[in-house]
Design a binder for these strands. Sequence first.
DNA 1: GCTGCATGATGAA
DNA 2: TCATCCTGCAGCA
Length: 269
Amino acid sequence: MPEGHTIHRAARLQNKRFKGKVLRSESPQGRFDSGSSQIDGQELRKIYANGKHLFYEFDSGDFVHVHLGLFGKFRTLSLPTDDPVSENCRWLLTSDTDRLHLAGPTVCEVIDSDQVDAIRRRLGPDPLVKRHREDPVEKMAKRLSRRTIPIGAAILDQKVLAGLGNVYRAEILYLIGLDPFTPSNQVSIQDLSALWSESVRLLTLGERAGRIVTTEPADVGKQRARDLGRYERLYCYKRHGEQCRRCGDTIRTADIDGRNIWWCPTEQT
DNA sequence: GCTGCATGATGAA
DNA sequence: TCATCCTGCAGCA
């Protein structure tokens, strides 16, 4: 379930277990053999998250760069355990007390600090990063000013905004009442500002909860977020043909750049 | 058991 | 715009 909140949460929780420890590094699957052996036996300084990217900094100055893509998954386990390591484990990190298991990532590679910087530089502002050199809304506006692609396509572009995925895209545009087909350069600065603050609010919530929840208590009653069913947590994602929770109009769907989006034509103009 | 789809991204055409 | 890579599971026979 990797959107930005998953990545930042993984960094936070993994730092608790592995930061500052000397680690055994292996690739049971074999596809990260040379990389994993390069850092075997080193101390992990810290794990950093940027957008959907993770960087594991080791004592030697090497970094392991991980991007989960659509299918990548982490599993952490306390040791000792009887659980066998699965065959598809790309990267296995082990301390004396914990085990980290990575499967199915799009990227898992050893890079240097210059390469880390290059990746960070090309990313847009990340709603889960607290300090920004440049005002994030202005930065987004700058990167959108000459573009006529639909805003629904633009906010999945990680150079514009780093960390949103297909669920948050649909939900955030719904919450700020913006039609996903609005040309990017026609989106007002007020709407961009709302887009940013809703991104910060919702990804922060998601990072804490470990799942994407966008519905407000007023719309779902008094149930706690974790007790809500999959679709109770969301307003429009994958709700094609259902009634909009707020106005009763029918939720529509369309394809934007090869990804499905869902929206309410009354709430979003 | 098989098929297709999915919260992602890239590189070729 | 398409094909490709990575994995898991829902839906269907």
